[in-house]
Simulated assay, not measured.
Amino acid sequence: MTERPTLVCFHHAGGTASVFRTWKQEADFPVHAVQLPGRESRVGEPRHTSLPALVDSLLRELEDVLAGPHVLFGHSMGALVAHALTRRRLALGLREPLALLVAAYVAPHEEPVRLALERMTDLELATTLCDIDGLHPQFLERPEWLGPLLAVVKDDLRVCASHHHGPTAPLPVPVHAFGGTDDPLVAPAKLVSWEAHTTAEFGLTWVPGGHFMVTARGSTLREDVFALTRRFAGAPVG
């Protein structure tokens, strides 16, 4: 009997583990939604602003979860985190994931779209997020809410900015990338180039919609990720 894998999910910049609540409810295998410090149940903990430091903490926090068969999924910033964690674990001789599934983020050697955080006002940043469906427009009417909310977003974006976007050796792990057909942040060519980061199987799926395909109404992303998790675990897909 095939041991069920754990699907380990990493959220986007400014996000929380709760975006995967329905994933945990609907899956027929364990789903572990990673909650980064400084939000929801971990709101009192200091947030990370460095990708290497974040990966160091995840090595310890997820040691037991990743000891068994698992698939890693990351959306946007989460894709960068999942890839960096995979590289670090392989360098340490630790168990590799059955597959790395990434959504809405450029390949690690590509430069992403960057926001000039230090020159943007909170209102400008909030407006930008609203334009890509990353923030509900109601927040623009309540500027007093923006400070604490955007502080999380800014620190997460600093995590992304701390990554050196240079060449890296490909992983001996299957990689499957998901892209939004109307994503303004990730050019198709920069998503396709994830293929250079694996010596194993590479796959690519386009999902109708924009950047926030995890929470978009009618998105097929969850079902697609579930099907791939079952397949890479050697379980029946349908």
Rank of each mutant, 00 (worst) to 15 (best):
L157N: 01
D131L: 15
P148G: 04
A169F: 14
H163E: 09
P143E: 03
D155A: 14
V152P: 01
H165K: 00
L146F: 12
Q138S: 14
A161M: 00
P174N: 00
G179P: 04
G147D: 12
T127R: 11
P137E: 09
H163P: 00
A126P: 05
E141Q: 15
L149Q: 03
L140G: 06
P170W: 09
H165Q: 10
V159Y: 08
H136D: 15
L157E: 02
D133V: 03
L135V: 09
K154V: 14
D156E: 05
P143I: 12
A169D: 12
P174L: 06
D133E: 15
P172E: 02
D131V: 10
A169R: 09
C160Y: 04
G147W: 09
E144K: 13
F178Q: 01
H176T: 14
F178S: 07
A161F: 02
P170I: 12
L123Y: 07
V153I: 11
V153T: 09
A177S: 08
Q138I: 12
G147R: 14
C160P: 06
V159L: 06
L150R: 02
P143R: 07
D156M: 02
V159I: 15
T168F: 11
V173L: 10
A161W: 03
Q138G: 14
V159S: 02
G147K: 11
V173I: 14
G179I: 15
H165N: 06
L123R: 12
V152A: 02
A151V: 10
V153E: 02
H163S: 02
P143L: 11
T128P: 01
V153L: 05
A151N: 02
P143T: 08
D155K: 07
Q138M: 14
P167Q: 08
R158Q: 09
L129G: 02
L125I: 13
L140R: 05
L135C: 04
S162I: 07
P148F: 11
C130F: 06
D156K: 01
P174M: 04
T128G: 04
L129Q: 00
E141L: 14
G180A: 07
A169T: 11
V159T: 06
F178P: 04
C130V: 15
L129N: 01
H165W: 14
I132S: 00
D133N: 12
A126K: 00
L129P: 07
C130G: 04
G179D: 13
H165R: 15
A151Q: 05
G179M: 13
G147A: 13
T128M: 05
L123T: 13
Q138P: 09
L135K: 01
P148T: 07
K154T: 13
H164A: 15
P137Y: 10
T128L: 11
V173P: 10
L129Y: 05
L150G: 03
P137C: 07
L146D: 03
P167H: 09
K154N: 04
P148R: 02
G179V: 15
H163K: 00
P167K: 03
L135D: 00
T128N: 03
P137K: 07
D133S: 10
Q138T: 13
L171F: 13
G134K: 05
C160T: 04
A151T: 11
G134F: 05
R142N: 09
D155P: 03
